[in-house]
Write a protein that binds this DNA or RNA. Structure first.
Lengths: 282, 282
DNA sequence: CGCTTGCTTGAGAAATGTCAAGTCGTGTGG
DNA sequence: CCACACGACTTGACATTTCTCAAGCAAGCG
């Protein structure tokens, strides 16, 4: 009770305007800066290192690119967070995922020439803009760029694969648990606090991403909090028991037949791990 | 009734051993062949065009690479079909997607050095093997290779984005409809028959991919057939009314608030479009 | 010929979707 | 500075759907 401060004032309400290399809107940065961001600082040498790379600044809610827009460029997130989404005819927004620092955006547009999904900033953000044509031509002359593109895209592909895991869980609390564990891990990878963080996205966005109704997300948050796994205050989340959260996220759809030739010790429904859970619900 | 032949004997039960450049198991092909497969035949010139590219042949059920295996290479599907999946601790297989001809496999392993997912052949198949190291080095010397890698990966990213759409639908029939529409479109893109085809995957695989129980997939198939949208015989599927199927797949989770500023003409639940549906169920 | 695997169908229980109401916080405008 | 409106979030109650368990059928294989 005393270890944790009031969750309210932990994170700034808006755009924690990160302090990086002092660059202002409209100003361009260099290829060297981009390589540094992507962790390829060692390769940031050579004659092309000074090649200017445009920056683009966005405010919370701004759209980086719309669904269906022509593929002009790919983007590397320098600061901030984005959501990628597809909008159905009736206006329903299907959130495909959330993208943060040092991740790539818009690469999926290359194959068809148009963006299959849109990207919207969830907070004040900035991105490096690499024109679609330059991706190949620059990459040919500077292997380091080619390399970071490969790595970033590979990571994006991995990340989108994890979406299926999140959406496949039967119970809504499991989906949320998986989402939080994933988020926590990604925060840690970015060098940020992984036990307590500020959700940049709304409940509705999370709901869409998990494939459930937003009311269910609310209820699931409450459930996780009741079980003592997390502490939630609006968009402020503190993970109290990461192990329990991971254990919960291991709950899978029961594999009906083919009882895992060998040991069947972990076969029974994982959901019963926490009897209190369903018991309290009664 | 007479237009359609008996569905049984339409497609071969096993491996329709495509007749391409006559290559036998163990034999290696050339970079030029790979470029041709990927639709970059025009660029299949130059001194490196003769660079040997190993081929690998797999039987139905064979594993191309396991989850967690070191990233040794990426693969381009020359013939056949694969499923990519992640296996949970209790043995549940989460199917991430299905990959066919001219598509890339294993690229998501580059960023971490290990395959985050496994790939299993659903029929007798063959793939071009490009070693992880060669992806960069060869790509540097041969822009055409770099290009097809970019395009193929972009397509893979797009494809994984569509998985969310499939899994997000509320009703199971809608998920199946979206899956079938997607499959039909991809078949067409490969130059194959898009109105009638043979499912290479089991009901269980489909179920995992859609995020529902396999019994529900069965019921959904029956439902689609009852409505006259498709005709199903085991794994043989014939699409009778593609428009209806597309219409059904447009059903989205109802967008509760923010009634799409402007026109709300298409707001009401799409599911009521087919009254017979729920009516017959009673 | 029996076995295994894949698929279908049925029935009950449990979970979520949906609709509805109400709280809270924020930004706007008087 | 305050009142107000608006959006985000929470919680409740009910209908609906799916999950789960079970049984049965058909086909392929040893």
């Amino acid at each position: 009770m005393d270890t944790a401060v009031r969750l309210h004032d932990v994170a700034p309400r808006r755009s924690p305007m990160v302090h990086l290399t002092p660059v202002r809107a409209g100003q361009t940065s260099t290829l060297s800066d981009l390589l540094h961001l992507m962790g390829a600082g060692a390769d940031a040498q050579g004659p092309l290192a000074g090649t200017p790379i445009p920056l683009r600044f966005l405010h919370a809610g701004d759209t980086l690119f719309h669904e269906g827009a022509p593929a002009e460029a790919i983007y590397f997130v320098r600061a901030g967070t984005f959501k990628t989404l597809r909008t159905a005819e009736d206006g329903y927004e299907q959130v495909l995922g959330f993208v943060g620092r040092a991740e790539v955006l818009g690469f999926d547009a290359l194959c068809r020439g148009r963006h299959p999904s849109a990207a919207v900033a969830l907070e004040d953000s900035s991105v490096y803009v690499v024109l679609a044509n330059d991706v190949l031509s620059l990459g040919q002359r500077l292997p380091a760029l080619d390399r970071i593109v490969h790595l970033a895209v590979s990571a994006a592909l991995t990340h989108r694969g994890e979406v299926a895991d999140v959406m496949a869980a039967v119970a809504a609390e499991v989906r949320l648990a998986r989402f939080l564990v994933q988020l926590s891990r990604r925060m840690a990878e970015c060098g940020q606090a992984s036990r307590r963080f500020h959700l940049r996205m709304s409940r509705r966005d999370i709901a869409s991403h998990l494939g459930v109704a937003h009311e269910t997300v609310s209820r699931s948050f409450t459930a996780l909090a009741d079980w003592g796994f997390v502490r939630v205050d609006n968009r402020e989340v503190e993970i109290l028991d990461l192990d329990a959260l991971k254990e919960l996220s291991r709950s899978t759809r029961r594999q009906v037949d083919e009882p895992v030739r060998g040991h069947a010790l972990n076969a029974p429904g994982r959901l019963d791990v926490r009897p209190e859970v369903r018991a309290n619900a009664t």
